[in-house]
Amino acid sequence: MNLFRLAGDMTHLLSVVVLLLKIHTIKSCAGISLKTQELYALVFAARYLDLFVHFISLYNTVMKLVFLASSFSIVWYMRRHKIVRRTYDREHDTFRHYFLVLPCLALALLINEKFTFREVMWAFSIYLEAVAILPQLVLLQRTRNIDNLTGQYVFFLGAYRVLYILNWIYRYFTEPHFVHWISWIAGIVQTLLYADFFYYYIMSWKNNVKLELPA
């Protein structure tokens, strides 16, 4: 494992910690898209089907369990916790996220590394992760008023993907025959979706003003 991969994993983990900190400490999910959280839960469920049949390392197994448990617990809190669910912004979180699932599944059936159930589900999870942030970005654009923890959560989530791209570049030049077009293209698409948010986040930090996205 190289430094970029480790930094990406830790940044991804940090985004989850920030979100859980908001939910558990403040008892609020204001500004958080349930639609995006449900998509991420589906992403991890589809990607980690090999959890108990293909052991890579203790680190790999632990990280898989953490992301599975955290994603489903976040969805549970937003849907079932009496206090947290009252803060959920149903009025603005109206992106029809299920319209993203079927096209991603169809794409996975057509473009995959091997036509087996696990490989198709892996490709599906990669395609779905690339667009899973869309409901969250749309929600932030509609509400415009973004609190610090929500802004940090989305920033760290985007930073994780940028670091993974650097990891791929590093591995391409240091490992023979390292080519993963599905992950690469999906990762670039996902990073581009964050570009607008990154710009306004950095400008708000630079000017020490509250983060707001244009309508």
Results as ranks from 00 to 15, higher is better:
Arg79Asp: 01
Val179Ile: 14
Met10Asp: 09
Lys210Gly: 04
Thr61Lys: 12
Tyr153Leu: 09
Arg90Ala: 13
Leu100Ser: 14
Glu113Cys: 05
Lys22Leu: 08
Arg171Gln: 09
Val66Ile: 15
Ile146Thr: 02
Val18Ala: 07
Met121Leu: 11
Leu140Pro: 04
Leu68Tyr: 03
Tyr48Gln: 09
Leu6Gly: 06
Phe197Ile: 04
Val154Gln: 09
Pro176Ala: 15
Met10Glu: 10
Ile111Tyr: 06
Ile32Val: 15
Leu110Trp: 04
Leu105Cys: 08
Lys82Arg: 15
Glu119Gln: 03
Lys27Glu: 05
Leu128Arg: 06
Phe198Asp: 00
Ile185Ala: 08
Tyr48Lys: 09
Phe197Arg: 06
Gln37Asn: 15
His24Ala: 13
Ala69Thr: 11
Phe156Asp: 12
Val16Arg: 05
Met1Ile: 13
Val209Asp: 05
Ile74Thr: 11
Glu212Leu: 03
Val138Arg: 08
Lys82Gln: 15
Tyr98His: 15
Ile202Tyr: 12
Thr87Leu: 03
Val62Glu: 07
Ile111Glu: 00
Gly8Glu: 12
Leu109Gly: 07
Leu139Gln: 02
Leu49Thr: 11
Tyr201Arg: 12
Phe117Thr: 15
Ile169Gly: 02
Ile74Asn: 07
Ile165Gln: 07
Leu20Ala: 11
Ala186Val: 10
Ala46Phe: 02
Phe173Thr: 10
Arg118His: 02
Leu137Arg: 00
Val16Thr: 02
Val53Trp: 14
Asn208Ile: 02
Ser70Asn: 15
Phe95Asp: 09
Val120Phe: 08
Leu166Ser: 07
Thr36Glu: 00
Leu21Tyr: 13
Ser15Met: 09
Leu6Met: 14
Asp50His: 00
Tyr170His: 07
Asn60Val: 01
Leu166His: 06
Gln136Met: 03
Glu212Arg: 14
Arg80Asp: 02
Ser73Gly: 02
Ile146Ser: 01
Pro176Met: 11
Tyr127Val: 05
Phe155Gly: 13
Met63Gly: 06
Asn112Tyr: 03
Phe155Cys: 11
Tyr127Met: 05
Asn167Ala: 13
Ala30Tyr: 08
Ile83Tyr: 10
Leu109Asp: 09
Asn60Lys: 02
Met203Val: 10
Leu163Glu: 01
Thr143Glu: 09
Tyr153Ile: 08
Arg118Thr: 01
Arg80His: 09
Ile146Val: 04
Val131Glu: 12
Leu102Cys: 10
Ser70Glu: 12
Ile32Phe: 11
Arg47Val: 06
Leu13Lys: 11
Val18Asn: 03
Leu49Gly: 14
Pro214Val: 01
Gln141Cys: 03
Val154Arg: 13
Leu157Val: 01
Gln37Glu: 14
Leu34His: 00
Phe156Ile: 10
Trp181Asn: 14
Thr116Asn: 08
Leu51Ser: 10
Thr174Gly: 05
Trp76Gln: 04
Arg80Ser: 11
Asn60Ala: 00
Gln37Gly: 12
Ile74Gly: 12
Trp184Pro: 06
Leu39Arg: 00
Tyr164Val: 14
Leu39Phe: 00
Lys64Thr: 08
Met121Gln: 00
Tyr88Cys: 12
Gln152Tyr: 02
Lys27Gln: 07
Asn148Leu: 10
Phe197His: 07
His97Phe: 11
Gly151Lys: 02
Val53Thr: 15
Leu192Phe: 15
Leu102Lys: 05
Leu6Phe: 13
Ala106Gly: 10
Val75Ser: 06
